[in-house]
């Protein structure tokens, strides 16, 4: 069965970030033989004076294909993991969404989009989770991480929100590479210009310092821009990717 796992508010300003914990949890799932996990995406929530967050208010989500009989064990493990690994003073939340048979996908997506726009109370998150039958739990502090955890699954479900965690180390003899080579070496599924045009597999791209992909149309998408001076494609800068 396919599930989404999302965590939020696990850190304090001096601790490891939530993204690192999400990757550790995904690795645990695979190490236990419960299933295989997809790369982690980062989803930005609303930044507002009425929302208590550490420094950026982002949630981290990944998909996993698991053996259905292991869902209970996996959920118990994830709960214990958050209790053990979250930083002191944090307000961690965990959401696990079984996608097979989930009929209220639209409600989850609407909630995710809403969490980017307005302040939401914890009770609203719990009410939705109960109504649509997904796991939502808090593991310390005020527990307000449940809002971002639930919202993060909705945003991942849109297929059009967030950046993938980490950056790619692409082996090449120069700083130039083709989309085909990038897709061979990484989880990138498509290379597109900022205008949305798909590059053909043999075009030339000049690699920037940090090469990252974003979630677009449900795919790990590498965005590039045309550099008129060099008349070439370049991978997008951090500055260009921050809106994703």
């Amino acid at each position: 069965m396919k599930i989404l796992v999302c965590i939020d508010d696990t850190d304090n300003i001096d601790s490891r970030g939530t993204g690192e914990l999400a990757s550790m949890l995904a690795a645990d799932i695979e190490d236990h033989g419960w299933g295989t996990c997809e790369p982690v995406t980062r989803h930005q929530m609303l930044v507002h004076p009425d929302i208590a967050y550490t420094s950026h208010n982002s949630a981290m989500c990944f998909g996993a294909e698991i053996d259905e009989s292991r869902l209970g064990e996996l959920t118990a493990h994830a709960r214990e993991f958050l209790v053990r690994e979250s930083a002191s003073g944090s307000d961690p939340g965990l959401c696990i969404v079984p996608l097979d048979g989930l009929s209220e996908t639209d409600d989850l997506i609407t909630f995710g989009k809403k969490a980017k726009q307005v302040v939401i109370a914890k009770e609203e998150a719990y009410a939705l989770a109960e109504r649509i039958g997904v796991h939502l739990s808090e593991h310390g502090g005020t527990g307000i991480g449940v809002i971002g955890a639930l919202a993060g699954t909705g945003l991942r479900l849109t297929g059009n929100d967030g950046r993938f965690r980490g950056h790619f180390k692409i082996e090449t003899e120069s700083d130039q590479v083709t989309p085909a080579e990038i897709m061979r070496q990484t989880h990138v599924e498509v290379v597109k210009s900022l205008d949305g045009d798909v590059l053909n597999e043999n075009e030339t791209i000049v690699l920037g310092k940090k090469v990252k992909s974003v979630l677009q149309d449900g795919k790990s998408t590498l965005l590039v821009y045309n550099d008129p001076e060099g008349d070439c494609w370049r991978t997008c800068t951090k500055q260009q990717l921050k809106v994703y």
Partner: peptide, 10 residues
């Protein structure tokens, strides 16, 4: 430096 995932400046 923050986590690489949270860095937005080049």
């Amino acid at each position: 430096a923050d986590d690489e995932d949270e860095c937005v400046s080049d």
